[in-house]
Nucleic acid binder design. Structure first.
Ligand SMILES: Nc1ncnc2c1ncn2[C@H]1C[C@H](O)[C@@H](COP(=O)(O)OP(=O)(O)OP(=O)(O)O)O1
Ligand SMILES: [Mg+2]
Ligand SMILES: [Mg+2]
Length: 424
DNA sequence: GGGGGAAGGACCA
DNA sequence: TTCCTGGTCCTTCCCCC
C-alpha cells in the first residue's frame, strides 16, 4: 500500500506510472537495433509472475477488448458516413491551414542523459561504465553504456542489474540537478529571456527576435536565404556555451513550432541538433513518415488504438481522417489533424507564467493493512505537504488522498474544502 | 445543456 | 524479493439548476 496526500488549487485528479505494451520500450531514445530479442527475454523472465506483471497483463487484456470493440465499430461505418466525415475534416483542415504560422523559430533543447551525465561529470570513475541513476526499485535514467544493455529510464533497478550485472546504480541528487539546471537556464535567457522550461533538463526557446537582431554576428549579410545557416550557428553556439559552462552536452531541435522542435531534438541525440526548414512542403514530407509514437502526447495506449486501425505513421492520420472523426472525441481528432499537418504552438505564450495547479507528496512502502501504521504514514505525509505548501506560500481547495494497493490498483478519494486552506 | 465535484486514466520527465 | 515521484490534461459519471 502507498499513501499520498495531495492538495489542489483547482479541481481535478490524477494518477501516474504507465507501463509499456507487452515488452520493452524500444521506440523512445538511445540505442537502436541491438539484441532486443534477448533483452525482452531477460525482462520477461525477471518480471513474470510478479504482481506488477500481472497488473500489466490485466491492463493489456482489458485494452485488447476495447480495441476489438473499436475495430468492429470501424468496420460498421458505411462509405457514405466515412465520406461525409472526411469532408467535415477537410473543412477543419482549411481552418487550421489558414492559421499556419511559419514565421517563428522555435528551439527545443534537451540535456543528454541528464541526471546520469551530472553524476559522471562529478565522479570520473563512473565514466565509460554502464551506470544508472535511481534505486533498486526504479531507475530515473541511464547512461549510453547502460542503454546498450537495454537499461532505461522507468525500469526497476533490479531488472537493470539482470540485463547488465556490472551496472552501477547511483542515488539521485536532486539539489545538484536543480543547480545545474539553473546554470543552463542562464544560457537560455541570453537567447530568449522569455524561454519556457518544461522540466529540469529541457526548455523551449523562441529565438525569432534574437536571429533578427544578431544575424550579422553569425553569417554574411546579403547571403540570400540563410535562415538555416543562421539558426544552426546560433543553436550550435548555445549548446557550446552550455557545455563550457557545465561540462554537459545538450541536443536541440529547430523548427517552426514547439511540436516539431520537440521531435527534432531527439533525432541527432546525443550532442547534436536537427533543423527542419519553415516550409510547408518540407514539413509535410517530414511528418508523413514519422512514427506516431514520436509525437509528444501519443503514448502506449493511443499508439495501440491507432495501430489497430493500421495507423503507424503521421501520414496515415491524414489518410484515415474520416474514420478518426467517427471513432474519437473532438479533442482527439482535432489533435490528430494538427499532427498530420505538422502544426503546433508557434509562440510560447501558452506556457508563460502558468500557476501550478497541484502539489503533492507520496511514498511507496512495504504492503500493510494495519490501520495504525497507515494512519501514521498519512499524518507524516500531511505534515510534509503542509510544510511544502507553507514554504511555497500555496493554499489548497481540494484535498486528495491517493492509495495504491499491492496489486497496483490506484484509488483516490477527494474532498473539496469550503475555503482555500493551508492546513487540512 | 451547463457547472461543479468526484473518480479514473493517459501521458510526460 | 522487488516496478518511483510529481506534475498536466482529458473523460466519464453524478447531482443539480
Ligand atoms: N520515469 C521517470 N521517473 C523519474 N524521473 C525521470 C523519468 N524519466 C526521466 N526522468 C528524469 C531523469 C532524466 O535524466 C530527466 C530527463 O529526461 P529525458 O530527457 O527524457 O532523458 P535523459 O535526459 O536522461 O536522456 P536523453 O539523453 O534521452 O534525453 O528526467
Ligand atoms: Mg534529456
Ligand atoms: Mg527531457
Amino acid at each position: 500500500m502507498a499513501v499520498t496526500k495531495k492538495s489542489e488549487l483547482k479541481g481535478t485528479m490524477d494518477a501516474s506510472s504507465g507501463p509499456k505494451n507487452l515488452s520493452l520500450n524500444t521506440h523512445k531514445a538511445g540505442m537502436e537495433g541491438l539484441d532486443t530479442e534477448k533483452i525482452n527475454e531477460i525482462i520477461k523472465r525477471a518480471s513474470e509472475g510478479s504482481r506488477f506483471y500481472q497488473h500489466k497483463q490485466k491492463h493489456q487484456q482489458h485494452l485488447n477488448e476495447k480495441l476489438e470493440v473499436m475495430k468492429k465499430e470501424a468496420a460498421s461505418f458505411t462509405k457514405e458516413q466515412t465520406e461525409k466525415a472526411t469532408k467535415q475534416m477537410d473543412q477543419l483542415i482549411q481552418e487550421l491551414e489558414a492559421e499556419r504560422d511559419l514565421s517563428h523559430t522555435i528551439v527545443h533543447v534537451d540535456m543528454d542523459m541528464f541526471y546520469a551525465a551530472v553524476e559522471m561529470r562529478d565522479d570520473p570513475s563512473l565514466r565509460d561504465k554502464p551506470m544508472a541513476v535511481g534505486s533498486t526499485g526504479m531507475l530515473s535514467t541511464s547512461n549510453y553504456a547502460a542503454r546498450k544493455f537495454g537499461v532505461r529510464a522507468a525500469m526497476p533497478g533490479f531488472i537493470g542489474k539482470k540485463l547488465c550485472p556490472e551496472l552501477t546504480i547511483v542515488p539521485p541528487n536532486f539539489s545538484k540537478y536543480r543547480a545545474v539546471s539553473q546554470e543552463v537556464r542562464e544560457v537560455f535567457s541570453h537567447y530568449d529571456p522569455g524561454f519556457s522550461p518544461m522540466s529540469l533538463d529541457e526548455a523551449y526557446l523562441d529565438i525569432t527576435d534574437y536571429l533578427q537582431k544578431n544575424s550579422s554576428l553569425y553569417v554574411d549579410e546579403d547571403d540570400g536565404d540563410n535562415h538555416e545557416q543562421l539558426a544552426q550557428a546560433v543553436v550550435n553556439e548555445m549548446r557550446h556555451k552550455i557545455e563550457v559552462k557545465t561540462q554537459l552536452t545538450a541536443s536541440a531541435g529547430i523548427a517552426a513550432n514547439t511540436r516539431l522542435a520537440k521531435v527534432c531534438s531527439d533525432l541527432n541525440k546525443p550532442n547534436g541538433q536537427y533543423y527542419l526548414p519553415p516550409d510547408r512542403d518540407r514539413i509535410l514530407e517530414f511528418i508523413s513518415s514519422l512514427p506516431i509514437r514520436k509525437v509528444s502526447g501519443i503514448g502506449n495506449v493511443m499508439e495501440q488504438h491507432l495501430q489497430a486501425l493500421d495507423i503507424t505513421q503521421c501520414g496515415h492520420l491524414m489518410e484515415k481522417r474520416g474514420l478518426l472523426k467517427l471513432l474519437f472525441s473532438e479533442t482527439n481528432y482535432e489533435n490528430f489533424l494538427t499532427i498530420a499537418l505538422g502544426l503546433g504552438h508557434s509562440t510560447l505564450s501558452a506556457w508563460t507564467e502558468r500557476d501550478r495547479k497541484s502539489i503533492s507528496t507520496e511514498t511507496t512502502f512495504k504492503g500493510t493493512s494495519d490501520r495504525q501504521t497507515l494512519f501514521k504514514l498519512s499524518v507524516d505525509l500531511c505534515q510534509e505537504l503542509a510544510e511544502d505548501m507553507q514554504e511555497k506560500d500555496i493554499v489548497g481547495k481540494v484535498l486528495t488522498l491517493k492509495f495504491k494497493t499491492i496489486d497496483f490498483q490506484i484509488r483516490t478519494r477527494a474532498q473539496t474544502l469550503s475555503e482555500a486552506t493551508l492546513l487540512p
